[in-house]
């Protein structure tokens, strides 16, 4: 399955209708360069900026977390017993999904549509597995959302990742359909790259959350 570039919206040339006369102070039309059209990587840069904004939201939550933690005598509260088993499994899955989504990008770069689709579907499965396990961490935590500040921040931090993960899954689902439909080619797959960037950022969010919740705080 070779990929063909048929996407109508990528790297569009500027429509020149001829209806708008160019008006210059001298009054005469000038031959000149065409108006700017997007350089390569526009979607990727937009996604990177979106990730920056999202990282600042995470930063605000973490600032609150550390401020409350510093002021507490016992952290987490003594009756909190959260195992590290499920978080470890999620971390390993996140690392695997990072590799599989990258496999998709490498395949797309080689214009190998079949492998790209396979890699994306594998990544989707890993993502769904992570979402499932995260739901389990909510259900099995053994404390309520508003029992104490730790419980709130635990759920907010993991929920923050879960939201990003669900968004990334939807994004990747659309992208795999587009790959199957042949929207990308070896030198035109900016949207695919943007999706992969967001996926990797979601993984970075998970690593941060795990570090904050489980490495910097002792659990039984």
């Amino acid at each position: 399955m070779a990929m063909v570039a048929v996407s109508p919206t990528d790297n569009l040339p500027v429509p020149a209708s001829g209806r708008a006369p160019i008006v210059l102070p001298s009054g005469e039309p000038l031959p000149g360069p065409v108006p700017g059209r997007p350089r390569r990587g526009t979607s990727t840069i937009g996604t990177l900026l979106l990730c920056t904004a999202s990282a600042m939201v995470l930063g605000a939550v973490m600032a609150v977390y550390f401020a409350i933690k510093e002021g507490s005598t016992t952290w987490p509260p003594s009756d909190v017993h959260v195992g590290t088993y499920i978080p470890t499994i999620i971390t390993i899955t996140a690392i695997m999904s990072g590799f599989s989504v990258q496999w998709g990008i490498f395949s797309a770069r080689r214009n190998d549509g079949r492998n790209a689709v396979m890699a994306l579907i594998l990544t989707l499965f890993l993502g769904l597995a992570m979402a499932n396990l995260e739901w389990l961490t909510f259900v099995r935590s053994g404390f309520g959302f508003n029992d104490h500040a730790y419980g709130t921040l635990y759920d907010v931090l993991i929920g923050f990742h879960l939201l990003h993960l669900l968004a990334a899954i939807v994004m990747l689902l659309v992208l795999s359909f587009r790959t199957m439909a042949g929207h990308f080619s070896g030198d035109r797959h900016d949207a695919l790259r943007a999706g992969a960037v967001f996926w990797q950022y979601t993984n970075v969010v998970w690593f941060t959350v795990v570090t904050v919740l489980f490495i910097f705080s002792r659990h039984g």
């Binding site: 160019i22 000038l30 000149g32 360069p33």
Partner: peptide
């Protein structure tokens, strides 16, 4: 200022050298 007011949907047909 090198296009009409209001500009057309695609803003410019051509641009001067920059």
């Amino acid at each position: 200022w090198a296009t009409t007011s209001p500009p057309p949907r695609h803003n410019f047909d051509a641009l001067p050298e920059i």
